[in-house]
């Protein structure tokens, strides 16, 4: 009688099981998200108060006779400074929330002590990270919708452009924004406490990408650096789509680099994850915190 020495797993991985694992993570994240009702407050308060700081400063810079506003219009070509600022600050908030939510997804599992046991299941491990993005994209869509609604009602901000083009820009930005989140999540598992890195990345977006001003106003070296950040193209394209009625052809100079950066960051994110996964198994760091 022969005895097989090859260890056999009860798990039978396949495309179907990977999809099932992905959907299970999505469902878990959605359940957690809806269990804490404080997100409703955050959903209505944050879209309003964060841009407000910049909007009120811009209002002060305009002056009582709006003489400053005339200079702003001449510099930026934008007649609606509130809408101009909202687009920039919303993109910043989107990247910021993704860094905290997706970027810390695996770290939170590590802190809860569930990462190791999840890692042992015969599933596609990237689905743990990918599954986080589903509910995150839904909540961000709600966030952006609430932003548009609140500023439309309270400040009379009106979109002059085609909403489909705005949607197209946002869709094109998803790979870049979430790819960066994936790469970040993998690094966080290795370096553990990474708040400072979040501050660094979101700070770069805040300084270089023109969230409240046109990039053309920056010194030349800062403009060169800004070209390497996908959020620069997203903010520029979103403003053009929302307020200048830009079509696909006008948006192409923003769409092409945005999608290229998206492809780059998705690949970097995926391979960083694979590298981290191998490294963590070798060093046994997956369960440490």
């Amino acid at each position: 009688m022969e005895t097989s020495l090859i260890p056999r797993s009860l798990g039978q991985p396949g495309l179907l099981s990977d999809i099932r694992a992905f959907l299970a993570v999505v469902r878990r994240e959605w359940t957690i998200f809806t269990r804490y009702p404080s997100w409703i407050i955050a959903l209505f308060i944050w879209p309003l108060i964060f841009p407000m700081m910049y909007i009120l400063t811009a209002r002060a810079l305009s002056g009582p006779d709006e003489s400053g506003l005339a200079v702003f219009i001449a510099t930026t070509g934008a007649t609606d400074y509130i809408g101009y600022i909202i687009v920039g600050t919303t993109v910043w908030m989107w990247q910021n929330i993704v860094l905290w939510d997706v970027g810390f997804a695996l770290r939170n599992e590590q802190m809860r002590g569930t990462l190791e046991s999840n890692w042992l299941s015969p599933t596609w491990r990237f689905s743990y990270l990918l599954g986080q993005t589903g509910p995150q994209i839904v909540s961000m869509a709600m966030f952006i919708g609430v932003t548009a609604l609140e500023f439309g009602i309270l400040f009379g901000v009106r979109l002059n452009g085609n909403p489909w083009m705005i949607g197209l820009m946002m869709l094109a930005a998803i790979p870049a924004i979430y790819g960066l989140g994936f790469a970040f999540a993998s690094l966080v598992i290795t370096v553990k406490e990474a708040n400072t890195f979040v501050f660094l990345i979101r700070g770069m977006v805040m300084i270089f990408c023109g969230i409240t001003f046109p990039v053309a106003i920056l010194p030349a070296w800062m403009q060169s650096f800004a070209k390497w950040l996908p959020q620069t193209y997203l903010i520029h394209g979103m403003r053009a789509a929302a307020f200048s009625n830009a079509g696909v052809n006008e948006l192409l100079p923003d769409l092409i680099p945005l999608l290229s950066f998206g492809g780059f960051w998705l690949i970097v994110g995926y391979f960083t994850f694979l590298w981290m996964e191998r490294r963590a198994r070798k060093t046994g760091a997956i369960g440490q915190y």
């Binding site: 002060a60 002056g63 009582p64 200079v71 920056l218």
Partner: peptide, 18 residues
């Protein structure tokens, strides 16, 4: 961002509205 935004509202480095 406020510094650069202020530049967009300024003429010859002076924020006259402010």
């Amino acid at each position: 961002p406020v510094y650069f935004m202020g530049k967009a509202f300024s003429t010859d480095g002076q924020a006259l509205g402010f």
